[in-house]
Design a protein around this nucleic acid. Structure first.
Lengths: 199, 199, 199, 199
DNA sequence: GATGAATGAGGCTTCATTCAT
DNA sequence: GATGAATGAAGCCTCATTCAT
């Protein structure tokens, strides 16, 4: 990599970082390309040397974030082995990602993530993945048929997104462990668990 | 009511209706006051005879929608009587509201609902209500302490909002009963219910 | 005069009064026809039953004011009789008019008075009158030729307008007598009178 | 100064010049930012690259004009030395400024100069300066107490502003020397000088 | 004549994007 | 590649005026 290339890469990285920081706190619509360039310490026109337009930067940020989140969730041991352990590990991975990428979470799980024209909805992508996995589990009887895979996927993603976006806004709101434990319990037992049948 | 007042009320209603329809499909930011006026069949300036600005119209739509939704949820019989029945009735009320007010649902449960300046987040309001109820139930032992009331509330609202917004986009996606049943099952047993202990 | 005519006249008078009060404090451009109608306690459309447009109302106010001011200045005894007495009486009449018609003064002597389209400049009218009188006085040697009648007229009117508009804004700024005396002295002796030659 | 900076400065200067020309002939309210931009040969948005808004441009023009006028008036030799000479030199400076800056005069001495929000009245500033100087002269007996410093200042400024604005509209109305001489005579002897006492 | 809802032209301002340097 | 001035389309909102009741 030449010196020029290094400079270019640095500029690009700074624009990305500025985009993350500003989109997270102000949202897509309130931030201008000038804001981002200024925050990155470059000229307004430089923005367009690196990104086709504002949507492209936003898209790149969300794509990257989604890839990383997906990677973390996938690296969890197979859920089928031990249901409780699997669910808890996934919740842990999700919350860990949120802690490490607070800005990204707020961007990813804001509804503006799908306001951008010609863009796939990030949450929908996650839901689709979940639904596919679920369909298998229902098919082979591991999961009950009363819970429809599509609806389940929307519910799961909605729950995750909201909880994690809420927590990422201010992580001092709640100890990380409580968030993980609550998500786990809800998944394993429901939001309104019925008392366990006494013997 | 005089003729003039009737005319005025009609115009106002048409603007409201146009706002609902357009916001639901295009979102707050993509719709202009001119769009709304044109859709309502009135001149651009007429918009401002009825609403201070675009945010005021949006706010009025969401406030009204929230009030109606709250009313429906509250009219359900007390959950404490019969847990399963209560949960199912609430899900039924929620889904019924979505079926009757598809546009409102999509507005209410879009994140743009909190993008408007000086506005309370609709979902947060619902979450606060849920959290308050839940704290009581945990306090008197009806609900398990492992599920934190705050986190629970965010999870419940996130789940509801996403499922219902998704379904309202295209209600032919899924029979209404399946949505209700799945929401009910998830609340009572979790997304990943453990197999019932065999005897 | 029928009852209807009396009502109509009353409405007109109230619009005029409202116009005076509002134009005086806020200026022509900051006041809307709605403001005037509202202040007068009538509907917006009623304004146009009495005045062709906003300029017409403004014009009528200034015309009326100018006529009254002219009347008062003209009623002063002839200046030629006794120079000092005449000058002082005119100053007295001017300041008296200001005291009695503070709103009118502020409208009449604001530059907005000539901002209205197709309107004769009120101050210019006064200047023209003064210049004409002056030309005679110069011609017959009563007044010195070093003081050009045209320039004199602009100077006199400018001085009067500014002093009186300033005082009318807040008459507690200065005792009325001081205003009169100063105007008189300036006219008789100049702003920078040279010391009287000692014998 | 780089080429870009030169271009920018040129654009700014053209906007300022256009503002002066247009405000002088049409007034603040009748001129739009688009008018100014078009007159300057730039796009509408360019205006806002150089001035926050229309008022800022207007303010800048008047501030600059006031500074220059003040500079000219201040550069005159001290009035106390020789009363007649001092008064005449000030009148000469004032009229010279008007001849050199006809547009500025019409803007500066229009009442719109104080119509702009959050703006100090230019004429009032001049009056305040004059009043302060005058108070001293009265205090030390150089000027007669019958002429109140505050009223005097309003009168002087009103007279100057009107005469000079009138003359600047069309300088062929009157030879420059006549304007100067008349202003001088009025200040030294009054508008209605009493015949000199014969011995 | 009074009413007041409706009209719509027009002004101000923002900002994503381009392009000459 | 970086710069940043310029662009101009587009949006929000105001308000003088009209007109049906």
């Amino acid at each position: 990599m030449t010196a020029g290339e290094r400079t270019r890469a640095t500029t690009r990285a700074r624009l990305l970082a500025s985009g993350k920081a500003l989109f997270a706190t102000q949202g897509l619509h309130h931030i201008t390309t000038h804001d981002i360039a200024a925050h990155a310490g470059v000229a307004a026109g430089t923005f367009y040397n690196h990104f086709r337009d504002k949507a492209a930067l936003f898209r790149e940020i969300t794509d990257e974030a989604l890839a990383e989140l997906t990677r973390r969730l996938d690296s969890v041991v197979d859920v089928k082995e031990d249901l409780e352990k699997g669910v808890r590990l996934q919740a842990t991975a999700l919350v860990g990602f949120a802690a490490d990428n607070r800005d990204l979470i707020r961007i990813l799980f804001s509804r503006e993530a799908d306001a951008t024209a010609v863009q796939t909805d990030v949450l929908q992508l996650m839901a689709d993945r979940s639904a596919a996995v679920r369909r298998e589990l229902v098919a082979n009887g591991t999961m009950p048929a009363e819970i429809d895979p599509e609806v389940f996927a929307q519910a799961l993603i909605g729950m995750w997104a909201r909880v994690v976006a809420w927590w990422a806004e201010d992580t001092s709101r709640m100890p990380r462990e409580v968030v993980i434990e609550t998500l786990t319990q809800i998944q394993l037992r429901g939001t309104h668990p019925q008392p366990k049948p006494s013997i």
